[in-house]
């Protein structure tokens, strides 16, 4: 399967996506999210602090998942250069960043991935480094076979998507054979001590629904995943994060194509939770694009909505004071982060 961009699909344009998200629908208006925030005195939405730097190392990926909000895949060539990584390191040196969250695409496919991780560790031996590893990359090529060892050496937290504990649901979202390879990769991570109590090596799984419905309650789902993966495959992990799919890129395309867009949005809107709204991840995160531009979150990045701080839109111009005072850009896709128990890259927020 090709990315939307390679297909030259209209929804590969962020302008078209935003146009769709801002359309008034029979049961909700295009600016509904902002009006919900106004009702609870959260508009304009402001940051609380800047603790997390979520860095997109590129859109290249060995998988083409049906729901991917990045529209990542083997045909995407955008990757972060070492020069831009150097700019990330400068930000890390000069600010109180507590967590570096490496994402993609498959971040490990960036040829400078290992160099970057080593450079981060050389600056700060304690900062949390998270890699959003799709699991199958570990088995994709012999040059990646030692990734579990590399992760361990640099005390990297691993966060990996696994939509379900069965092949049918996993493969329907992530591609044929992905479940089997993911299980093999999880075993390799367990062998290094990842997800095993007492090792301090963190392996978290990420669940997101395989379709136009909301995720199950995180705690119950985590218990179910732990039991099923342990009983059937002898696999352990630390926590499960339940994430809601946001109507962006391929998931938006799926929603429209399948006639589920309106119903899904209505469900997200009906489930708006003010507590989750107060705890959205964009309030303590800056998302960095592969080219060094700054965004409120990974989703705004994919919609090409740069931060509103005009003097600090790129790593090279990082201005902490300006960023902390900025207004966060919100649109109707934000309902995905505030529905029910809330959703973030670290799971529920309320």
């Amino acid at each position: 399967m090709k990315s939307l961009k390679a297909q030259d699909h209209p929804l590969s344009s962020s302008e078209t996506e935003i146009h769709y998200l801002e359309r008034d629908m029979p049961n909700f208006s295009g600016d509904r999210f902002a009006s919900e925030l106004k009702k609870i005195n959260l508009f304009p939405l402001k940051p609380t602090q800047i603790e997390v730097l979520q860095i997109n190392l590129g859109k290249m990926c060995n998988q083409v998942c049906l729901h991917c909000h990045v529209d990542a895949g083997p045909d995407r060539k955008e990757i972060m250069l070492r020069e831009t990584m150097q700019q990330c390191l400068e930000v890390l040196k000069n600010n109180s960043i507590t967590s570096i969250d490496l994402t993609g695409g498959a971040p490990e496919m960036n040829p400078d991935f290992r160099w970057f991780v080593e450079a981060i560790r050389a600056i700060d031996s304690e900062v949390t480094i998270i890699v959003r590893c799709n699991l199958t990359i570990i088995l994709a090529n012999p040059k990646y076979y030692d990734l579990p060892l590399f992760f361990k050496k640099h005390k990297i937290e691993v966060a990996s998507s696994l939509p379900y504990f069965t092949a049918m649901k996993t493969d329907s979202q992530r591609g044929d054979g992905v479940f089997e390879k993911s299980i093999k990769a999880l075993k390799l991570l367990n062998e290094q001590g990842y997800g095993i109590e007492g090792t301090g090596l963190v392996l978290n799984l990420v669940y997101n629904p395989s379709g136009a419905f909301m995720p199950a309650a995180q705690a119950g789902l985590e218990a179910e995943f732990k039991k099923r993966l342990a009983d059937k495959f002898d696999i352990s992990f630390n926590s499960l994060f339940a994430i809601t799919n946001l109507p962006i890129s391929r998931f938006l395309e799926y929603l429209i194509r399948s006639g589920n867009y309106e119903g899904y949005m209505e469900k997200l809107i009906d489930s708006f939770n003010p507590t989750a709204a107060a705890g959205v991840m964009c309030r303590n995160t800056i998302s960095v694009g592969w080219d060094g531009y700054l965004y409120d979150c990974d989703f705004n990045q994919m919609l090409e909505l740069k931060v509103t701080s005009q003097d600090s839109q790129h790593l090279k111009d990082w201005n902490q004071q300006s960023l902390i005072k900025r207004n966060i850009i919100v649109k109707n896709h934000c309902f995905g982060c505030t529905a029910g128990a809330g959703s973030s890259c670290g799971g529920v927020t309320a």
Binding site: M168, P209, G211, F213, P215, A216, A217, G220, L221
Partner: peptide, 12 residues
């Protein structure tokens, strides 16, 4: 059908 899926059940 929607509710069971949202409770984490699978098709089987």
């Amino acid at each position: 059908t929607t509710d069971t899926m949202e409770k984490g059940c699978d098709e089987e």
